[in-house]
Design a binder for these strands. Sequence first.
DNA 1: CCGGCACATGTTATCGATCACATCGCCGAA
DNA 2: TTCGGCGATGTGATCGATAACATGTGCCGG
Lengths: 329, 329
Amino acid sequence: MTDVARLAGVSHQTVSRVLNGHPNVREQTRNRVRAAISELGYRPNRAAKALVTGRSQVLGVVAQNSTLYGPASLLVAFENAAAEAGFTVSVGNVSVLDRHSIGRAVEQHLDQRVAGIVVIAPVASANEALDHLPADVPLVTIDGDPARPAALVTVDQAAGARDATKFLLDAGHSTVWHVSGPSDWFDAIGRIEGWRAALTEAGAEIPPVMAADWTAASGYRAGQMLARMPDVTAVFAANDHLALGILRAMSERGRRVPEDVSVVGFDDVPEAAYFIPPLTTIRPDFEAVARTTLGMLLGQIESGSSTSTRHTIAPELVVRDSVASPGQR
Amino acid sequence: MTDVARLAGVSHQTVSRVLNGHPNVREQTRNRVRAAISELGYRPNRAAKALVTGRSQVLGVVAQNSTLYGPASLLVAFENAAAEAGFTVSVGNVSVLDRHSIGRAVEQHLDQRVAGIVVIAPVASANEALDHLPADVPLVTIDGDPARPAALVTVDQAAGARDATKFLLDAGHSTVWHVSGPSDWFDAIGRIEGWRAALTEAGAEIPPVMAADWTAASGYRAGQMLARMPDVTAVFAANDHLALGILRAMSERGRRVPEDVSVVGFDDVPEAAYFIPPLTTIRPDFEAVARTTLGMLLGQIESGSSTSTRHTIAPELVVRDSVASPGQR
DNA sequence: CCGGCACATGTTATCGATCACATCGCCGAA
DNA sequence: TTCGGCGATGTGATCGATAACATGTGCCGG
């Protein structure tokens, strides 16, 4: 920096001003400094800046140890958005979302003096950890507890589930069964609510919820039960992997999809279009979630105050071939 | 740090020595300092350390903008391994692996004064970028060009492909068709080589390679062609998504898997066990790749010299239900 | 014609660690 | 006895940026 200052014939402070877009610098001086910077190929030392300001240009993300399509897409989208805004993202994976793990991951980020933190906290057990976090660090939660008063961005699970269920009802099914995600996930809870609401509105009978986890294996098990109940004609699966397991169970028991049973999933994983049959599903807009999250986080960083705004991103129904009218039986 | 020093009755330098495990500190002093640290809840400022040493406790990863199962698993495994070693990982996603993009991502990391960089560089176009990188920064490549003299960790694509092909030949198939990945990917090239080697060894006829990309869509297109050739009884797909597309194409044309056609994939994505039928595939050990990579990187960081060792991780065949003898026709 | 204020710029202290070197005992060999 | 050397510890400089304050210039209004 001193070299740049010397070459431009100014003081290091003026260089700093140019770098930070300070207004009170003469146009001509600014240009000279800029020229010197590019001539020397100067790049500011972020560590020094972080040391004096107490904040680095890094955003921390705490996510569950997961290679699932949803979280991975979210992460990539967030990284891209952050990079555009000049921030680096450092990821802290945890295997379980309990208080201890989250606390540790967050501390690790605070050590690094991150400018802000994003916690992808889809389960209730994360709540306690979040309540005990220092309040002065900008923090946004994704898919967290709707009941917590905190900055939150979330996919509108209920709306998606409603759309899916309605789509099946509109096709003529008298009711729709639901294979749900784990009951401690807010995502799963929201999808159950939406499904139930759609049935209630239509005056349809509400079958018992079939609880599963998010894996194809548990979808397969649920599917085996559903397949042997002849009056089941429509199933809404809480995600695409569950749906895949259900498709396989149906196929094994000779129940054709969609002729005998209609299935709708959630997530729109890239392979969904190549399931047998291609799966009708709900596509959440991960990029919108990422952009919104980043916006809120930067807002908090700039203003220095933590808001508790919340944003909900509506997902979209993607129609493929796994739904038909029951009349076609 | 000064506070800790005062409380322990020593100088800040001694505190620093304790922190960095310097040998020449009396046991008793060390304990006093440790006690003071935990009493005050002191956490060292990483920015200050990075400023003076010129390196941060951060490792940079440059990966292709991808939510694919393989890269995502690799990333998670690497993050976990790095966290255990006290390092944070900052990810720079790029959408294309060309010289410009990689260069930019790497520069961004160098700005941050990362201690080392990992580049996941599965395509030839990445080579040029890597050649122009500063030589003094520790760097390990994953899935890079086997011909480049550089630190490299890679899954043994050829061995996996051979195992897969042999398994099909051993089941009694006279030859095995191959649907490959994009020809500029080293992974795809290695898999083609392994497949061809197995056929040559067995003295089997070598059918033309069907080129595709990694998507289920392109697998489906290739599958449509394969399905209308009655003499095709065995297919080795370069990854599980391709295999999924092939399965669907076969199913549409009424060719049963595995009775009429046997299929083997590569990657062992979590859903593979729930395809119709469950897919026999090759499972790469991403965790081993991640651990090995981290080990090499830390080695370079400590020694200060860049090696050009290379490690190859052998994958494993996972047998499920998508392969049968052609005699069962 | 002068005080004062806004703007442009420079000077010095500061963040929190490590590094290089200085100091102080103490022990053992000449 | 003396001195070299080593182990334990302290002192001051340093990394590269920003913050706070100081300085110098030109313009405006009274």
